[in-house]
Amino acid sequence: MTAQVTWLALAAVTLAGAAGVVSTREIMRLVISLGTFLLGVAGFFAYYALPFLAVAEVFVYVGGVLVLFLFAIMAHKPDEEGRRLLGARFDVGVAVTCSGLFVLLLVTLRPLAGLLSLTPLVSSGPEAVAGVLLGPLLPLFELLGALLLAALVAGIAIAGKGDAE
């Protein structure tokens, strides 16, 4: 019973955050909604007994990417009332397309539903994750390291080129 209430609470927080990201016009509300969504995702990781992923999500996203978003938003010029507003519109065609995709996903993934459970299960800890990353997934792990370095260099190069222009 407690597990189901926790799951529903996490689902509500995550959905509310995602709805805020998609619909709000105030830029700070968008960041707060994104933070709420990401905390909900970290909560799901903790719920499914994956503490390593939960901590990584909080450190990388709530602590890192959100700060990057705040820095980018500081560059936005406020309007006359001192607010930083974003464009938002409702598109019926896109809404219908996304609803169709939702139904298609449900129909396609339905055979897998029996595998999943709402109740938390005992899972493997950080030692097992380290064993996988330094074992069978080592090439992927190395590739991701190179990708992060490339992204860092690209970010500096793009921002620096903008400075020059």
Binding site: L50, F52, L53, A56, E57, V60, Y61, G64, V65, L68, F69, F71, A72, S124, A128, V129, G131, V132, L133, P136, L137, L140, F141, L144, L147, L148, A150, A151, L152, A154, G155, I156, I158, A159
Partner: peptide, 23 residues
């Protein structure tokens, strides 16, 4: 733990995407 390894890979990819996108 293989699934967790791939989940971590998505986290890293998303962080890289955010860094380049925000630049």
């Amino acid at each position: 733990a293989t699934g967790q390894g791939y989940t971590l890979a998505i986290l890293v990819l998303a962080a890289a995407e955010a860094a380049v996108g925000l630049a």
